[in-house]
Design a protein around this nucleic acid. Structure first.
Lengths: 224, 224
DNA sequence: CGTGAATTTGTACTTTATGTTACAATCGCC
DNA sequence: GGCGATTGTAACATAAAGTACAAATTCACG
């Protein structure tokens, strides 16, 4: 319980937590690694082994107390508090994120919004004032914001990342389809729907289409 | 080149492709596994081995022709065509996805949009008419749509998935924070920003905060 | 209240999957 | 025509997942 814990294990914990929250809300008091695994498509042994990195949370013959395990996981993942985040980009995606209800109750809150567009600066979005991007380095440290969300076009993403890092941010969630170059100590997670889609079309392509597919050949040239 | 190819390899290919598209746009004609790896934070040997599953695309002493490798990867991933997708949910997220320019040129297009809200049905979104969700099973097969995007609240996600599958969809991109239960032959990819964030706060929590963090204790009770 | 069957955990051990190292073969270039 | 660069891959090393089981617990039943 004090050694290095594999990153892949860390990435599964939020999935367990999400399932537990769901069970708790459904009034489910007790569960087992088997039940959890069934719901998640993960082997029960995997779940037990993952959890065993952090302690012994279950009871033999019974399983896990949903509420207790939930609290433990929230502690382990440090979401037993609320993390303020800075959102950069008040376009369509930024707006969707600003209005997203899913952050509440899962440990996060958008506490500041930035955009370069002067028409957007000043007007509040989801009740939060939109500031100019250039003020990131100045405003973030004062507000103790340690997480940044990048929701700007790919061309602007790296410079936004640089500003956020100047503002002492330690974790980035990047929606732009580009790899960011950041100091070693800064964490980055990437969300790119096209990457996810393309790894599915690899498998789809081999299969039978249901109708007249391949509607359009992709033109050779590129623009973006 | 005919054996089973690990899923994890498939998931890296789109990342290679994305980098190559970027290079191509930058007028970069030739690259090497080393250069690619440097940009992506992946070892050069990893890249060479991944590619070797599909053939020999490089030239010793020189490296890879950016344009050629790009075309090869697009073929392998079957994004040398355009895939029509059905988007379900015309809320904030659905709107952002409908307007997203990043699908173009990467092999995808939103060809149909659905929502349950009668106020949204009828009005076009990003030039695409919004239909009622109940019409999914009827409309998709006729249009040869094989990919669905779920952008509805968690409560509705499973029933939307069921409708899409009834409409013969073979791949789902699910933005709802819930695991879907689907037949074996249907592919699913998940996007949940909170999962990504929580795996970062695991590491962040151990570190020094930059100011007065832990602004608010999460209340014990839950609602959502 | 005692007992045995049924569960279920945590973990040691085994197997499988993934990644790294190292290098012969090849190529372009000066 | 020799030299530096770079590929593709075999051999090795590391990481992750699955198997199996002793130990603990519950519960039904007499």
């Amino acid at each position: 319980m004090e050694k290095h814990i594999p990153d892949i294990v860390i990435h599964r914990l939020p999935i367990y937590l999400r399932a537990l929250e769901l069970m708790a809300r459904a009034g489910h008091d007790i569960t087992s690694s088997q039940e959890l695994g069934q719901r998640l498509g993960i082997s029960s042994a995997q779940i037990r082994k993952d959890l065993s990195h952090f302690g012994e949370f279950g009871k033999q013959g019974t399983g896990y107390d949903v509420d207790f395990l939930r609290q433990q996981l929230r502690q382990i993942l440090h979401v037993d508090r609320v993390w303020d985040m800075a959102l950069v980009g008040a376009g369509d995606l930024g707006r969707a994120l600003a209005h997203y209800k899913g952050f509440e109750n899962r440990g996060f809150r958008i506490a500041a919004i930035f955009d370069v567009d002067p028409r957007k600066v000043g007007k509040p979005l989801a009740g939060i004032p939109v500031e100019h991007t250039s003020r990131i380095p100045e405003l973030l440290p004062a507000r103790g914001i340690r997480i940044g969300i990048i929701a700007v076009p790919a061309e602007a993403a790296q410079s936004v990342a640089d500003l956020l890092i100047e503002g002492r941010v330690q974790a980035l969630l990047n929606y732009a389809p580009i790899r960011l170059s950041v100091p070693d100590e800064v964490l980055v997670e990437y969300i790119d729907p096209v990457i996810a889609l393309q790894s599915m079309t690899y498998y789809l392509g081999a299969r039978q289409g249901s109708g007249q597919n391949r509607s359009q050949a992709e033109p050779a040239g590129h623009s973006r």
